[in-house]
Structure formats: C-alpha cells, structure tokens
Amino acid sequence: MNGETKNIIQENPFMPEPARIVRTYHLTDDVKFFQVRITDMDKALSFKYDTGQFAMISVLGAGEAPFSISSTPSRPGLLEFCIRKTGIVTDSIFRLKENSLIGLRGPYGKGFPTEKMEGKDIIIIMGGLGAAPLRSVLLYCLDNRNLFNRVILLHGAKRPSEMIFREEFFALKERDDLECYMSVDEDDTGQWPENVGVVTTLFPKVKDLDAENTVALVCGPPIMYKFVINELIKLDIPKDQILMTLERRMKCGVGKCGHCAIDYIYTCLDGPVFTYWDVLHMRELI
C-alpha cells in the first residue's frame, strides 16, 4: 500500500521564466523603473501582451507579486515596470542591480480593449503610480497614432519630485498630436511650470470633448477615482466608456488562489481593467 510518485509532464501556469534586469533607475525616491528581458530569446520575443495587463515578478528568497506592465506591446522584446517600494517583495526588487535575475510569468488579466477604442477620442487620466499601467496604453496609442482620434493626457502627482516619468511626459508635451496637461497638488519647488492643483483642475483645459465618442482611462490612488469619475460623468461620457484599472491582492494571477475575488469575479481573470458600470454593478470594487 505505498503510493508511487508519478512523473508529471504538464503545462504549469505557475512556472516563472528567468528574466534579466537590463536597466533600472529611480523615477522618484520610492519608485523605480525596471527594464526586463526574458533570458530565453525566443520566449522574450513571443511574449505577447495587451496594454493594461500585468505580470507576476518573483525574487528568489523574497517572494512573488503582481505588477502592471508599463511598456507597450508595440515595442516587443523588453518589458518595463515601475515599482513602488511598499512591501517584502518590492523591498527586495529595489535592491537588485542591473543584470540580476528575476522570475517572470504572465501576462495576466483583461487589459484595455484597444481595438474597440480605435477611431475614438482617448482621454487618459493618471495620478501618482497610476501612470504605471496607463503609460503602456498611452505609448500604444502614440505608436499607432493613426488608429485613434484625439489623444489627451491628464497627469497628476502630489509634488514635482513625486511625478513619475516626468522627463518622458515633458518630452511628449512637445508633440502636437497629443494634448498633454500636467499638474501637481502642491509645488514645493516654486519652479513647477505647469498647473498646480488636484488632477481634476485640469479638466477645464480640455475643450470640445465629444463625450459619446470618447473613451476615458483612469488609474490612480483610491481617493482620486471618485472625483475624476464625477468630472467624467458631468462631461456625459457613457459609464461603459470609462475604464479603470484596479489593485487587489493577488498570489497566483490565474484565478486559483482566491485573493482577488470580488463578488463572483476574479480581478486577475476578469480585471484588472473594469468599466465604471462594472464598478457600480459589482459593489465593493472601489
């Protein structure tokens, strides 16, 4: 009566791929940028993802955690993440130098419906670390500029020193096919050239929005959603054209561990991108 151990040959969705940190630098004091390449070249090139999806990153000895992909699928090969130091895994990721190895698996979740967004006006509203997932879709829209009508970016941060991708967005501001507005809640430097005030104070700058034909993408700290959504509703943007990406605790990314469950959906399978209608419909989402 001794059970024999079996040899298993099966696809394992929990198996990470070794990946190398190609580049890393600080975006702000507590947010770092990571450029990552899966070490197996074939797998690196065949890693297909949508904007707004996330990946699981693991650091040996510390653990695994979910992170939004900040790079755009229109530039394959390298994956980019911006990561804030908040817990055990991120603390360890922060200490990794260029050339270190990490584990990576994914992509997971339902991203932004970029195909459905084609031909529409796109307004992207990001606050703080909300820029991490939204940079992906922003760069995607700019790389495929002819597919979309107007592209508008509203970017808010607490202070100038806390604005992530500051240089990149200032450079984008020069483009005449992007309407880019930036704001800080408070300017402690006295040298901030742009708007001062919460991100919603940027809305009056956006003129002649064709609400029916607009898709709004929102990501930011929980407090931001309420105010931004109020503005969007005032502008008559349909509830199912307001898209937001949400954070939950996730351990597996594949709908098994249960941690990201809300009502009867799993954020990792059915999200992290939801419409405002989903949010109203599903209680507990924000």
Binding site: G61, A62, I88, D91, S92, R95
Partner: peptide
Amino acid sequence: FTRILKGNPPE
C-alpha cells in the same frame, strides 16, 4: 535568519 542573511525582509 535566512531571510535576514540574504538581505530580504522577514515574513
């Protein structure tokens, strides 16, 4: 002990 040793925060 192992986590501290490897520079990772403890669980």
